[in-house]
Amino acid sequence: ETFPLDVLVNTAAEDLPRGVDPSRKENFLSDEDFKAVFGMTRSAFANLPLWKQQNLKKEKGLF
């Protein structure tokens, strides 16, 4: 299941849709939104070091 970017960005855990893991908001973006937000594919993002993934998520309001 995916959700629009505005539902996930800068949203407190208690305000997220049911079933969304607040530590993994990026997994609930569509592939198109994911690429638009991070400028890379999911596989490229997954290959980044964890610290870099976290920094990007913070920068984009998805942490």
Rank of each mutant, 00 (worst) to 15 (best):
T2M: 09
T2G: 07
F3Y: 15
F3K: 04
D6R: 08
D6M: 09
V7E: 07
V7K: 11
V7N: 06
L8A: 04
L8Y: 02
L8E: 03
V9Q: 15
N10A: 08
N10S: 08
N10F: 06
T11Q: 08
T11A: 12
A12Y: 06
A12W: 06
A13M: 12
A13I: 13
E14H: 11
D15T: 07
D15K: 10
D15W: 07
L16A: 04
L16Q: 04
P17I: 03
P17G: 05
R18H: 15
R18V: 14
R18T: 13
G19V: 12
V20Q: 05
V20C: 07
D21A: 03
D21Q: 06
D21H: 07
P22C: 08
P22N: 05
S23L: 15
R24P: 03
K25N: 03
K25E: 04
K25V: 15
K25D: 04
E26A: 02
E26M: 03
N27Q: 15
F28N: 07
F28I: 03
L29V: 03
L29W: 04
S30F: 01
D31A: 08
D31F: 03
E32P: 08
D33I: 06
D33Q: 06
F34N: 00
K35D: 12
K35C: 13
A36I: 12
V37Q: 02
F38R: 00
G39A: 09
M40Y: 05
T41P: 08
R42I: 02
R42N: 01
F45V: 00
F45Y: 05
A46Y: 14
N47H: 12
N47P: 00
N47W: 08
N47T: 12
N47Y: 08
L48N: 00
L48W: 02
L48F: 04
L48Q: 03
L48I: 04
P49V: 02
P49R: 01
L50C: 14
L50D: 09
L50Y: 13
W51V: 10
W51N: 08
W51Q: 08
K52C: 13
K52E: 14
Q54A: 12
Q54I: 15
Q54H: 11
N55M: 14
N55T: 13
L56K: 05
L56T: 02
L56P: 00
L56I: 10
K57L: 11
K57P: 00
K57I: 08
K57E: 03
K57T: 02
K58Q: 11
K58T: 08
E59T: 08
E59Q: 11
K60C: 08
K60H: 12
G61P: 02
L62C: 09
F63K: 06
F63W: 14
F63M: 15
